[in-house]
């Protein structure tokens, strides 16, 4: 026992960070939503009674689903293309995907502000080409938020899907071809089911990250495009941390619930595919 403790000493500093700054604070959030200072359902009641909060929750789920699903559809062919290239160029191509991934969400959201604004790149180009006589309102719409979130989360989906594809033994495709399957058939019956799990994982990661978004909807969305993260920020700014915690729990468990449903749907879809 002592020997085991002694040998595991190297993990202690990391565990200290995790316990003190991740587990304890997470527990604090749960506690703050239920105790104020005595056990109360005040915060949870407010969450359920006022329809506006549930509306924002469902909007957050809806936006995240749109972004994650569109991302998965866009990412799959991109990952397939990279995976089909010779090894050396794969490295260069994946590098191109990494570049946007490295930029902070703040910078990438700001970039869309510059691109889609009234005097932004798109409007100036359209005015210059005579496509429109008045600047088109693109900012502060749901589409602007979704477009930017898609761009921010796509690299992660591409990298995850591609990573899973590299594990697929391409001899299986060859075997299917030899046994008489046409290229399209081999793709549909062998490669797509095998790469499905990776695409699904990418989609779920994108969905989870997108549920917690706060910078992008605040900068690019109108008041009606606010997401759960924005509500939490407002409550924290007003020092209502009890209610902010109730929203935080809704975010966490809502996300978890959706992920379970998504996994289930994914398994169903895979069965249909096969």
């Amino acid at each position: 026992m002592i020997a085991a403790l002694k040998r595991s000493v190297l993990i202690w500093p990391a565990m200290l960070l995790i316990v003190a700054l991740y587990l304890v604070p997470s527990f604090d959030v749960i506690r703050s939503s239920l105790f104020d200072p005595d056990l109360t359902t005040r915060h949870i009641d407010r969450l359920i009674d006022r329809p506006v909060f549930m509306t924002v929750f469902w909007r957050t789920v809806q936006t995240s689903l749109i972004v994650a699903f569109a991302g998965a559809l866009i990412a799959w062919p991109v990952a397939y293309f990279i995976n089909a290239q010779p090894r050396r160029s794969q490295f260069l191509l994946i590098f191109l995907i990494f570049i946007p991934l490295w930029m902070s969400v703040l910078i990438r959201s700001y970039a869309w502000l510059v691109v889609l604004g009234r005097d932004g790149v798109v409007n100036s180009a359209m005015l210059g080409m005579g496509l429109t006589t008045e600047p088109v309102q693109m900012l502060f719409t749901p589409a602007a938020v979704q477009l930017a979130m898609l761009q921010i989360l796509l690299p992660i989906q591409i990298v995850t899907t591609y990573g899973a594809m590299t594990e697929i033994d391409l001899d299986l495709m060859r075997a299917a071809r030899i046994l008489g399957a046409r290229q399209g058939q081999a793709l549909r019956r062998v490669f797509i089911p095998l790469s499905f799990d990776g695409a699904m994982t990418g989609m779920i990661i994108a969905f989870m990250l997108s549920m917690g978004f706060f910078i992008t909807p605040a900068l690019l969305g109108g008041p009606r495009d606010r997401m759960l993260g924005n509500l939490i920020e407002v409550q924290v700014a007003q020092l209502n941390w009890g209610f902010a915690s109730a929203l935080g729990l809704l975010l966490l468990f809502g996300t978890l619930g959706c992920v379970i449903v998504l996994r289930f749907c994914g398994r169903m879809a895979l069965r249909v595919l096969k």
């Binding site: 995790i18 604090d28 959030v29 990250l209 917690g212 993260g229």
Partner: peptide
């Protein structure tokens, strides 16, 4: 189990972690 625990903050929204740190700091 330890790997899962140590890497799990990746998938928790930053806003939730920030909220936790905020309350932790207040307390």
């Amino acid at each position: 189990a330890f790997t899962y625990l140590i890497t799990s903050p990746i998938i928790v929204p930053h806003i939730f972690i920030a909220l936790g740190i905020f309350i932790f700091a207040l307390r």
